[in-house]
Structures are given as C-alpha cells and as structure tokens.
Design a protein around this nucleic acid. Structure first.
Lengths: 206, 206
DNA sequence: GTCTATACAGTGATAGAC
DNA sequence: GTCTATCACTGTATAGAC
C-alpha cells in the first residue's frame, strides 16, 4: 500500500524528508534554516520550494512521514492471534521502546513541543495520528488480557502514564545529553527497558 | 543566603530573567529574538546587552536561575529527621511533581534538548547542577529506607527510570499539547501523580 | 524539476551619546 | 544604566531563465 505522496513526486521528496528530519532532530525547527536544508540535500532553496510550500509544510511532512512505519510494527503484534496476552504485551512494549527511542517520529517529541504554540495543528496531528492510535493499539492487547482473566482491570490513563512515561523520558534524555561520551552508561536502553517491562507485568498481572 | 548575582545588579536582572524565561518556554530558544525579549522587558536590546553578554548567556541565566529554588523544597524534606521513610518518600515525590511540571526549570527540559548540540555546556550544567543533585537527594531517602529495612534494595538507575519517567513525560506532554482546551482531562496531574506514587511505593516496599 | 538572482524583513550585536 | 542609531549578516520566500 503506497500513499498518494509516495508516487506523486517520486524520490526527491523522500530524500528531502529524510535528510531534513535529521537536521531538525539535530538543530531544532527554528535552528534549521532552509539554506542549511538545501545544502544538505545538495540542491538550492528554490528547489525545496518547488516540492514544499514552505518551512512549516516541510516540517509537517517530516513528522507525518514516519507515522505509518512506526505504527505498523505494533499493528502486526496486535494482529497476532496465536500469542498469549503476556507475550503480546511484552513484544508490544519492546516495539514501543524501539519506536520511541530509535525512530525519527519517536525522537521528534521535543520538536513538537518547540513548535506547538506557533503551529498548534502540528501538535494536534501528532496526537490524533500517532499518539492516540498507538495507545489504542496497546489498549487492545490490555483489554483482551483483562477479558481472558490474565490481566487485572486497570485504569487506562494511569497505565499509559506508567508505560509511556519512562520510555519517552529516556528518549528525551538521550537527545538532551547526546553530547555526553558516556551516554550509554548513563542511559542504558536495554537494561532500563527490561526492568521497566517487569514492573509493568507485575503491576498488571491478575 | 544570597548569591553574588542577586546583589550585584539588583532587580533589573531578575526581571529580565523571569520575563525571558516565559518567552523561551513559549517560543523556544531560536524562536525567541532579542528584540522580542527587549520589548517584553520594556527596554531596548542595548540594555539587555548591558546585563548579559549575549543570547546564550541570557539563556543560561534563565535555566540556572531556578536550580536553587527547585532543589530547596526537596532538601528540606530530606533534612526532616522526624518523618518515617514512607512519608518522606511520598512527600519527596509530590515535591518532584510540583517542580517538574509547574516550575520553569522543570519545564525547560525540551529547551535543553533544543540547544544541547549547539551548546553542550548548557546540557552538562543542567545535568550536573540540577538533575544529579535532585537524584542524589532522593537517593538519600531511599538509602535510609533500605538501611532501616522499610524498603527493598533496588537498583538506582532502574528506580529513577520508573520514578522520573512519568513525571517528565507528563510535563513534556502538557507543554506539547498546551493548546488543547481539554488539557487537564487528557493529562490530569494529581490523579496521575497519586496512582504513580502508589506504584512506586508498592514497588519499593520491603 | 532545477537553477541564478534577488527582495526585504529580521537577526544578534556594537558604538557612542546622555 | 538606558537610550538611538547602525552594523554586517542571515532568514524565508519568490521571479523567471533553462
């Protein structure tokens, strides 16, 4: 399934988006100039304006671009009918860590915060097209577990607070302190992830 | 105890810092111009440059300014010799929520992420003068509880992951989605805080 | 679809009067 | 300690040739 954008203007657009996403992640929205983007893409500013109506449009494309990919991994786990609730939950949490910490969309949260007042529509889209679907998918697993008696009945918002909080903060911390040479020692992803998953499992087990 | 800055140039500096902090929080670092700051402070750019050597210096002052106040609440809780470990922990967590979500320093995390590559020294200062002392203070309570047999022996990093993760993410979310008119319904601070505290207590209780 | 050239408002920062 | 005036530069965005 290819989206309309992917076939309309070919690969130039895709190349700009991926190059540009890196720049935004590294320097922020206001800190990344159209000139810098053009240079990194090895083209002129005028060419950028052929593909995108402006800087805001370009930013929205960068944010939106990864929604599908980021959600797909989770979707396939939810769709798996053979696995037990505990297993599905564990795999879903690992996938969420991967997405939140390593994928562009996940790492873009601080950027959304930066532009949210100037462009509230970006924040709305981020929530309705990424955050909300992600939560809905995870909740499908939880609900099935509750129905089958494997999980305790838990409050949705309170659970999400405990589930997403640590992974998002870990992502933010790793962006904030990216310049530290002992980053992985301060913020070891797998070690923190695994102990976090244990806490969640203990919390929700019936 | 007054710092050297507080007495040297009087109240102009303090006024600039508080006004400027609001602007940075609202528009980000690169998104806030010296002209806008001058206007909000009801003075000219040249006057700003009399008090601060440049925009970066001004930003550092805004971030650094709140360290003391933010840590003081926690310090007084740690210093209390009469309270039991459980009580101290609970009070400390409530104080941390207050600081992380409502104080300027706490809300500045996304900003640090924004400028961290351009000015790694800001990130280092934020970590060594704010994050690390905060963690050290909390850890004093935990250690005392472990020594007295009230708390289980827990891994420091893993505990911090569960403790700070949700509150930082809640702060970030409230910044990201500040434009939502149903913000408090999506992200109700006290409800989420209290259930989070229960999880922590259950997790650490001997 | 990509280029050169350009418009022009806004940027951080400074000099020097008061 | 605050001002006016100005600096050199970069910002986003566009017009029009190829």
């Amino acid at each position: 399934m290819t989206t309309r954008e992917e076939i309309s203007t070919g690969s130039s657009r895709a190349k700009i988006i991926s190059t540009c996403t890196e720049l935004f992640l590294e320097h922020g929205f206001a800190g990344t100039s159209m000139s810098a983007i053009a240079k990194a893409c090895q083209m002129t500013k005028a060419s950028l304006y052929y593909h995108f109506s402006g800087k805001e449009d370009l930013f929205i494309a960068c944010v939106t671009d990864g929604y599908g990919v980021a959600l797909r991994a989770l979707q396939s786990i939810v769709a798996d009918e053979t696995a037990a609730p505990h297993d599905k939950l564990k795999r879903a949490l690992i996938a969420l860590y991967e997405t939140t910490i390593s994928s562009p969309v996940g790492r873009m949260s601080p950027l959304i915060a930066e532009v949210s007042r100037a462009f509230p529509s970006v924040a709305r889209s981020f929530h309705s097209e990424y955050i909300a679907p992600q939560q809905a998918l995870l909740w499908q697993i939880i609900e099935a577990g509750i129905a089958s008696g494997d999980f305790r009945a838990v409050d949705r918002k309170q659970l999400f607070h405990i589930v997403f909080g640590p992974m998002v903060t870990l992502s933010l911390s790793r962006e904030m302190f990216a310049s530290f040479d002992d980053l992985d020692e301060h913020f070891p992803v797998e070690e923190l992830r695994d102990s976090h998953i244990e806490v969640i499992i203990r919390m929700i087990r019936a």
